[in-house]
Simulated scan of single mutants.
Amino acid sequence: MKLKYLLLSLTLFVTSVFIQDSKTNLISGKKWHAKAIQMGEQKMDVPPGEQNQMWMIFHKDGVHEVNANNSIKKGTWKFSKQKDSIHFITEKGKEKSMKLEKLTKESLVLGFMENGMEARVYLEKNK
């Protein structure tokens, strides 16, 4: 249940404007599937059967999509070079920033605060 709550909270994020090209190119245009969620010290793997149903896409034009429980939510995103983070704004105007903790061609780890706890979402590129 916490896993679904966290993934749904991801729908509260998204942004646009000033994007660093090299990191933006690695992030954008790909479907990133959720592989694990961590709250504090507790890390939960996303079951393989649910990984195709939980994903994020960062479009180069600043649009962001999140799919959780077969419900696609959109918003905007913006990369902050100074803070090495992604700032999100949802369709409903809610804002959230996530620290870019790891970024490679195959994996993306985003850190954020959730209910006063450190949290992370581990994502892998769609193959």
Rank of each mutant, 00 (worst) to 15 (best):
G49L: 10
I86L: 15
E95Q: 15
F112P: 03
S16D: 05
I19G: 06
G62T: 01
T11H: 04
L12I: 03
R120V: 06
F112M: 09
K35W: 08
L123A: 02
M44C: 09
K99G: 05
Q51N: 02
E124P: 02
K60T: 07
E91V: 06
T24V: 10
E118I: 12
L100G: 03
K83D: 15
V66K: 11
Q38F: 07
N25K: 14
F58G: 00
K92N: 15
S107E: 15
K73A: 15
Y122E: 02
S16E: 09
K99D: 12
K102W: 05
S9V: 11
L6D: 03
D45M: 13
T11V: 04
L110N: 03
T76V: 06
E106C: 01
K31F: 01
Q53C: 00
L3V: 15
K99M: 11
K99A: 04
E65Y: 04
G62D: 01
L3Y: 09
N115H: 10
H33Q: 11
M98E: 02
D21H: 08
L110R: 04
T11S: 09
K35N: 12
S97F: 07
L10E: 14
V17Y: 09
W55T: 03
M1G: 15
I37A: 11
E95L: 06
T104S: 13
R120M: 08
E124I: 10
S71L: 12
L3N: 05
E41I: 09
L110S: 01
T11F: 01
E50I: 10
A68H: 05
P47K: 12
H33T: 07
E65R: 08
E106F: 01
V66A: 13
E50Q: 14
G116E: 07
N126D: 15
K78V: 00
I19K: 12
L8C: 08
K60S: 11
S9I: 09
H87K: 09
I19C: 12
H59M: 11
Q53I: 00
F88I: 07
F58T: 01
V121L: 08
L10G: 13
F58V: 01
G49C: 09
D84I: 06
L123C: 03
M98P: 01
H64M: 14
F88M: 11
L103S: 00
K83T: 15
K125S: 15
K74F: 04
T11P: 00
G49R: 11
I27H: 02
K23W: 11
P47Y: 08
L7D: 06
G49Q: 10
M56G: 00
K31W: 03
K127G: 07
H64G: 10
G75H: 01
K94I: 10
L103V: 02
S22D: 11
A34H: 05
V46N: 03
W77L: 04
K73Y: 08
K60D: 06
E118Y: 11
I57C: 07
L108K: 02
K96P: 00
P48N: 05
K125L: 10
P47D: 12
Q82G: 09
Q82Y: 09
K81G: 04
T11C: 04
N115I: 05
L8S: 07
Q38A: 09
L110D: 01
N126K: 14
H87Y: 11
